[in-house]
Computed example of a mutant assay.
Amino acid sequence: MHRLIAFGEALVDMLSSRLGDTREGPETFTPYAGGAPANVAVACARLGLPSQFLGMLGEDYFGDFLASELAAHGVDVSGVRRTREARTALAFVSRDAEGERTFDFYRPPAADLLYRLDHLPAGVFGEPALLHLCSNSLTEPAIAETTLAMAGMARRAGCLVSVDANLRHNLWEGGGADISLVTQLLDGADLLKLSTEELAYLRTDHPEEDWLAERLAAGVKAIVITDGPGEARLRQLETETRVAPPRVQAVDTTAGGDAFIGGLLTRLVERYHDDWHRDAALLEDALTFACRCGAHAVTRPGAYAALPTRDDLGH
């Protein structure tokens, strides 16, 4: 277990120059490379973990921009495919006074939704690795089938599967994520990451403890629950670990969650062994490192550029 493979969307975040409700002066948008799985690949690469991104980009200016940015940050892009059938996705990002953001997506149609199993590089799961996925590659039937099949392939090949719920409801037809489909992806993972808001949405009227127990009974080994600047929790069948992140002044929360999961996965891969999920010291250390990474990222604007390196973290 020595590398990360991230699959899903890479897109361009068009970050607004306005902060909060101000309407003074012209509004401009600055392009930043983004997309949750791509962010995680970059987060891990910047921390020194070999990382590969799998996905589809349009044969357009923004596709060129994303491919160049991924490679510049040390991500293996040999598994990236290009298409003329759709354009690279855009997300226009607005921020409130605390740096919390809202997204207006130009997707679908988008190139990332056209990735299929026959686009996978030969032997990609030939050696054990960590496969990271998000729910945004479930929003249409064909890409959902690809995502779920890829998770199954990785598990059968001995890979560790990580899933970040990362719900973006406005990407789904009807304006809400398909709870059944998302839960199907979650239950095929070894490690889950979700926010308190995502947990509340997915469990509907189920008590939180019962819902978490159902995921763990399905085979999930650890569930990480984040709460913005609040404590991060790591839940298992009989234990819970809590870590408070460093207190910082948030500028832009766009990359915070992806920096967090990138730090968590990097630490787990660095110290991985077959009983990783029973190693309380490893899990607490990984959660602490993840909190430091997430806290650092929200102090900078954008996605890739905000993700910390070892030097940024002091080691």
Results as ranks from 00 to 15, higher is better:
residue 216 L to W: 14
residue 270 E to S: 14
residue 301 P to N: 11
residue 311 D to C: 01
residue 229 P to K: 08
residue 224 V to N: 05
residue 237 L to T: 15
residue 283 L to Y: 11
residue 189 A to G: 10
residue 290 A to W: 02
residue 270 E to I: 14
residue 305 A to E: 09
residue 231 E to R: 09
residue 257 G to F: 14
residue 262 G to V: 01
residue 189 A to I: 13
residue 201 Y to M: 13
residue 266 T to C: 08
residue 218 A to Y: 12
residue 290 A to I: 05
residue 221 K to C: 02
residue 189 A to V: 13
residue 201 Y to G: 09
residue 187 D to C: 13
residue 241 T to A: 12
residue 252 D to C: 02
residue 236 Q to D: 05
residue 199 L to V: 13
residue 207 P to Y: 01
residue 206 H to K: 09
residue 218 A to I: 12
residue 250 A to F: 01
residue 211 W to C: 03
residue 276 W to Q: 05
residue 270 E to V: 14
residue 249 Q to M: 14
residue 186 L to Y: 08
residue 229 P to G: 05
residue 246 P to S: 15
residue 287 L to V: 06
residue 281 A to E: 07
residue 297 A to V: 08
residue 306 A to K: 03
residue 307 L to M: 01
residue 303 A to G: 04
residue 273 H to Q: 10
residue 247 R to G: 12
residue 208 E to Y: 06
residue 227 D to T: 08
residue 248 V to E: 09
residue 233 R to V: 01
residue 243 V to D: 10
residue 204 T to A: 12
residue 240 E to P: 06
residue 274 D to E: 10
residue 190 D to M: 02
residue 209 E to W: 08
residue 205 D to K: 03
residue 194 L to H: 04
residue 293 C to E: 11
residue 220 V to C: 10
residue 264 L to D: 10
residue 239 T to C: 09
residue 207 P to L: 05
residue 196 T to K: 14
residue 249 Q to E: 15
residue 207 P to R: 09
residue 219 G to Q: 13
residue 300 R to E: 06
residue 304 Y to Q: 02
residue 240 E to C: 02
residue 206 H to Y: 05
residue 246 P to C: 15
residue 208 E to P: 02
residue 288 T to A: 04
residue 269 V to K: 12
residue 203 R to D: 04
residue 266 T to R: 07
residue 241 T to M: 14
residue 196 T to F: 11
residue 312 D to T: 00
residue 217 A to H: 15
residue 290 A to V: 05
residue 284 E to N: 07
residue 222 A to S: 12
residue 226 T to Y: 06
residue 310 R to W: 04
residue 305 A to F: 00
residue 215 R to K: 14
residue 208 E to M: 06
residue 187 D to G: 11
residue 253 T to E: 02
residue 305 A to Y: 00
residue 238 E to S: 11
residue 209 E to A: 09
